[in-house]
Design a protein around this nucleic acid. Structure first.
Lengths: 152, 152
DNA sequence: TTATTTGCAAAGTCTTTGCAAGCAG
DNA sequence: CTGCTTGCAAAGACTTTGCAAATAA
């Protein structure tokens, strides 16, 4: 079930960009690379990407990072998530938007975000679609509470 | 089922404030009044509350509105919601946090936010709690898609 | 070559904060 | 009275934008 996630690969970037008349640049390559290297449940903000790039001696402008995570999101390569902590975060997209992928468990104490790799909302979506005449394309679910380490 | 929502009343404000050593002020009274008058599925941002107050000739500082919606949220009188449109929104709390109230359907075209007055997530929460050792206190669910008027 | 992209700095938006003056209890 | 509140303006945090210089195709 969690094997349904197939993430975007670096070698496909040039092609995907070309499809939309965008150019391949070192900035775009390295930004995507950061996400590939951090696909283990991390959710990076633009600034965090910028910092991780600097650690690798890539000193791109922060605005460039902002522009390109947005671009990669529009290409479906990244997903943009809002955990309510005042900044947008991004992660490698699970690819198929039909496979709703995972939920996020947000610890109210340590602020950790845990991924839960299953999705049970198909039935719920069906009921809501029928009752409300709303065509659901996607959903975003956050559970708030205390993680294993923070619960009393 | 949707009768489980019992909203906060204006006459209880003074008492609730006093419990926490806060004072009753005209600003607080009128801000809550705005939410009571707009409890029909509206989700107001601080600025919208400020505007609605001005329409009634209450010219309070915007910072005061910000401070007080935050205060009313901390008292459990309002709920703070993030629809990802770049500003926080508030609505009268459904009261009992155990009664998870409702979900939000967000139309990707007209940006309308529709409330869906039922909650099916108890089973999902139970499964997640068991599998992940995460103690869930609350959840926030958004469904994205097209509303009745915007679907083709 | 030439349209895209970058980098920088400036501007924008929402929200918070400092502080003196005002007010509720 | 006395400490909580307000209002204003300034500061903060994150993000976007304008524009000239650089660059991918």
């Amino acid at each position: 079930m969690s094997e349904t996630r197939q993430l975007f690969k670096l070698q496909d970037l040039r092609g995907r960009l070309a499809e939309h008349n965008y150019k391949m640049t070192p900035q775009r390559k390295e930004i995507l690379q950061i996400f590939i290297e951090n696909c283990d449940g991390r959710h990076l903000s633009a600034e965090e990407v910028h910092d991780l790039l600097r650690e690798k001696d890539f000193d791109f402008g922060l605005a460039t990072v902002y522009r390109n995570v947005e671009l990669l999101t529009s290409l479906g390569i990244l997903d943009k998530i809002d955990f309510g902590d005042g900044r947008m975060r991004y992660e490698l997209s699970s690819g198929n938007p039909q496979i709703h992928q995972h939920h996020h468990l947000i610890c109210l104490k340590c602020k950790k975000v845990i991924e839960f790799e299953e999705d049970f909302l198909d039935d719920v979506e069906k009921i809501i679609s029928e009752k409300s005449e709303f065509q659901i394309l996607n959903h975003e679910v956050k559970f708030f509470g205390y993680c294993k380490d923070c619960r009393e």
